[in-house]
């Protein structure tokens, strides 16, 4: 009962309330709704601690068992401890914390993001092949948008239109139409999933499929 019935009743009551409150502006409903939002933030604060503990545990186990690449785990734990200590001791507006943020975290994260440029190049080299009519259409559209989104596209003209104009048209119309189609399907799928959970039709998220 505690592992199945009560969670399902809870999901039904809270879910139904969250749907209904959207249509009822009464202050009582809004107060409860605001309370739910506040709880969401409070719970998030607590689970961050749970997450951090999980991370520490994961890396400690790796180090203890000397798993492959366990030295990286040492670096991860060192990073965690030093950032926390630097923040507590020197504050977050300056000192070692700000230094580490500016000169370690920022470049490290920027480097990860910049990998995208390299991966996009190798992936598009592999994927954009004129294997069929549809693949050729994709290839042509991809090249037009790639050139049209940079100043070079303004200098290349096809039939009186610059590649920038053609790429803008592709993004504004065929792209938006396709995206709307996907969005409508996604929206309905989302609503159906949410309703299935609220109504207790779908329970596999509780780890129980039947």
């Amino acid at each position: 009962m505690f592992r199945r019935t009560i969670p399902l009743i809870f999901a039904f009551v809270v879910g139904t309330f969250m749907v209904i409150q959207f249509f009822i502006p009464h202050p009582t409903f809004q107060a409860i709704y605001n309370g739910v939002l506040d709880w969401q933030q409070v719970i998030f604060g607590f689970v961050l601690v749970v997450g951090t503990l999980s991370m520490v545990r994961h890396h400690v186990i790796r180090i203890q068992r000397k798993k492959e690449g366990y030295r990286y785990s040492m670096v991860a734990l060192l990073g965690l401890v030093s950032m926390v200590l630097a923040g507590i001791i020197g504050g977050i507006r300056g000192g070692p914390y700000k230094w580490m943020f500016d000169y370690i975290q920022m470049p490290a994260q920027s480097s990860m993001f910049s990998l995208l440029a390299f991966f996009v190049a190798s992936a598009s080299y592999r994927a954009f092949r004129a294997r069929s009519v549809t693949a050729t259409l994709l290839l042509v559209a991809g090249v037009i948008v790639m050139l049209g989104r940079v100043p070079a596209g303004e200098y290349i003209h096809v039939g009186g239109l610059s590649l920038t104009d053609i790429s803008t048209w592709i993004l504004d119309y065929p792209n938006t139409a396709a995206k709307r189609g996907i969005l409508i399907g996604v929206g309905l799928g989302m609503t159906a999933t949410a309703l299935k959970i609220i109504l207790g039709i779908e329970t596999s998220y509780l780890g129980r499929g039947d």
């Binding site: 998030f44 749970v50 997450g51 509780l206 780890g207």
Partner: peptide, 16 residues
């Protein structure tokens, strides 16, 4: 996991 709440739910789901 990237989100701690998702992690907790995933643990429960896999365990079950």
């Amino acid at each position: 996991n990237r989100d701690p709440i998702v992690m907790t739910v995933c643990q429960e789901v896999v365990r079950e």
